[in-house]
């Protein structure tokens, strides 16, 4: 006991003589911990983007060394595939919007019997495996609608597949939107349509933009269902990458197309949040 007390006393003496030591040790430990934490996060980020970085590096490799020449194919023979991808994406977004807005409005604002069941049916695509969706659509297109291998069939497949991605964010946004804004607009002289366009749609901006973004990312990069329903004339960029890899092996020009797709998606997401997102999110009740 006596020695223990003495040791404590000594330690206290040391602490009094050199006051900054313990604090310095703690600080240094904290810095090391910080570094480890940051390193951990960066490591995972690297693992996530590694496939893309590798593909990008591969797309720059030619017989003459490193060059951008494989990218001339992207704007040459692959141009049509990229344009088709954009085309079907934009049509799908527009159709999704036209379908999801009234549906969300009806589901949230009106008393519909069996609402829950209706919602799960509408969201069926979320939990249907892509291959199942593919074969079902092929059967339906061939025997029921006779739109197999057409552009209509292709866009139809995308709309069916991504409809919930548009519907759900709009439903959530509409549910969170206090009805008092609608009533205020009505009392100020706005009819239903004016209320919708001047008050409700702008305030639903966050939900609608989320829906547009999700639809874009999914449709633009969709491959598996496309494989089932696309006709010979309707080769999207994603399908072209797959076809080329299967027939010609891994070529720098194919990697260039793949990298281009990746960059387009990335740029669209960033641009969307910068322009649309911020404009609509600012000043809404959310922020």
């Amino acid at each position: 006991m006596a020695t223990g007390g003495k040791a404590i006393a000594e330690r206290q003496e040391v602490a009094v003589r050199r006051p900054g030591l313990w604090t310095r040790v703690v600080r240094q430990r904290r810095r090391i911990l910080d570094l480890v934490q940051h390193g951990y996060i960066w490591l995972w980020m690297l693992i996530f983007v590694l496939p893309f970085l590798t593909t990008f590096a591969y797309s720059l490799r030619t017989a003459d060394g490193i060059s951008l020449s494989p990218y001339q194919h992207v704007f040459g023979s692959f141009k049509d595939n990229l344009l088709l991808s954009f085309e079907v994406t934009i049509i799908s977004i527009v159709l999704n919007l036209l379908l999801a807005l009234p549906a969300a409005y009806a589901i949230v604002r009106f008393p519909i019997p069996g609402k829950g069941f209706l919602l799960s049916v509408l969201n069926l695509a979320l939990y249907t495996p892509a291959a199942v969706m593919g074969i079902s659509l092929v059967i339906v297109y061939n025997f029921l609608f006779h739109i197999a291998q057409t552009l209509t069939g292709l866009v139809g497949a995308y709309v069916v597949g991504t409809y919930p991605m548009m519907l759900i964010p709009i439903i959530v946004a509409l549910r969170d939107l206090p009805q008092v804004y609608e009533e205020a607009a009505r009392c100020l002289g706005a009819n239903r349509l004016q209320t919708l366009f001047r008050v409700e749609l702008p305030l639903l901006g966050p939900g609608i933009s989320a829906g547009i973004l999700l639809t874009f990312v999914i449709v633009f990069n969709e491959f598996l269902v496309t494989l089932f329903v696309a006709g010979p004339g309707n080769t999207t960029a994603a399908l072209r990458v797959f076809n080329l890899t299967r027939t010609a092996g891994i070529q720098p020009s194919t990697a260039a197309l793949a990298s281009t797709m990746q960059i387009v998606s990335f740029v669209v997401v960033i641009a969307f949040f910068r322009f649309f997102g911020s404009r609509y999110l600012k000043g809404t009740y959310l922020i």
Binding site: P178, V180, Y181, L203, G205, G283
Partner: peptide, 9 residues
């Protein structure tokens, strides 16, 4: 209205 209901946008 009780909540002023000004349009936030």
């Amino acid at each position: 209205f009780q909540s002023h209901a000004l349009f936030p946008h």
